[in-house]
């Protein structure tokens, strides 16, 4: 299973849809998500938290890296 997904540049709510799709197949583990905007960062974080996952966000150049774990 892919452990990094890159949703940079996608319009909302596509990043959230992609991340939810990736998380729905797993019960635990780690997923890294690359996003390019603060809006996508916040939306993905809220969605993942809502599904019971923990999210750590860090800055990667102009982008953000989200580390999602459970």
């Amino acid at each position: 299973m892919e452990n990094t997904i890159d949703v940079r540049g996608l319009s909302c709510p596509e990043p959230v849809i992609e991340v939810k799709k990736a998380l729905s197949g797993r019960s635990s583990g780690q997923l890294t998500v690359l996003v390019s905007s603060a809006v996508a960062r916040d939306n993905v974080k809220r969605a993942a938290n809502g599904m019971g996952w923990k999210v750590e966000a860090s800055v990667e150049g102009e982008d953000f890296k989200l580390t999602i774990t459970k």
Partner: peptide, 13 residues
Amino acid sequence: FLKNEFSLGRSQN
């Protein structure tokens, strides 16, 4: 359409 993978593609820098 969003549920059917609708996307206008990535924006670029």
